[in-house]
């Protein structure tokens, strides 16, 4: 699958569609995104679990480790920092993160290329 780089915000859904501390999958310009809503923030990362290659991260359990908001892969439970995309269990493994925000009750995502 080829990734296109977008610099614009794409509206994804109503904020109400996101349950607190749970993710959904979204398709933005052909890219599978995992979108999470915690108590006070929105996060978007790639839906692809970099360890297994399956598109499942949106179905992981959301929580915290130390101060970091996290999601655990539902396949083999590696934990990722939602802010940076870094895997907290496997050094060197990371998942791409994207920008997410809420405007007028709508959730918007902007794809980002990790630098």
């Amino acid at each position: 699958m080829t990734q296109t780089l977008t610099l614009t915000w794409t509206t994804v859904c109503l904020l109400d569609r996101l349950e607190p501390d749970r993710g959904v999958a979204a398709l933005v310009d052909g890219v599978q995104i995992a979108l999470f809503r915690t108590a006070d923030e929105l996060f978007a990362i790639d839906n692809r679990d970099p360890v297994s290659g399956a598109y499942v991260l949106s179905r992981g359990i959301v929580g915290s480790r130390g101060g970091a908001p996290t999601v655990a892969s539902p396949l083999h439970k590696q934990v990722y920092d939602l802010r940076s995309g870094h895997c907290l269990d496997l050094p060197g493994v990371a998942v791409a993160r994207h920008d997410a925000r809420c405007r007028d009750g709508l959730v918007e995502v902007r794809l980002r290329q990790e630098g």
């Binding site: 501390d21 749970r22 399956a54 179905r59 359990i61 959301v62 539902p74």
Partner: peptide, 20 residues
């Protein structure tokens, strides 16, 4: 809120496989 606590299997009432 219980829904957000469940492992993916319980969340979807089915067993997740390696390919999602």
């Amino acid at each position: 809120e219980q829904a957000s606590l469940q492992d993916t299997n319980d969340h979807f009432l089915a067993n997740l496989q390696r390919d999602g």
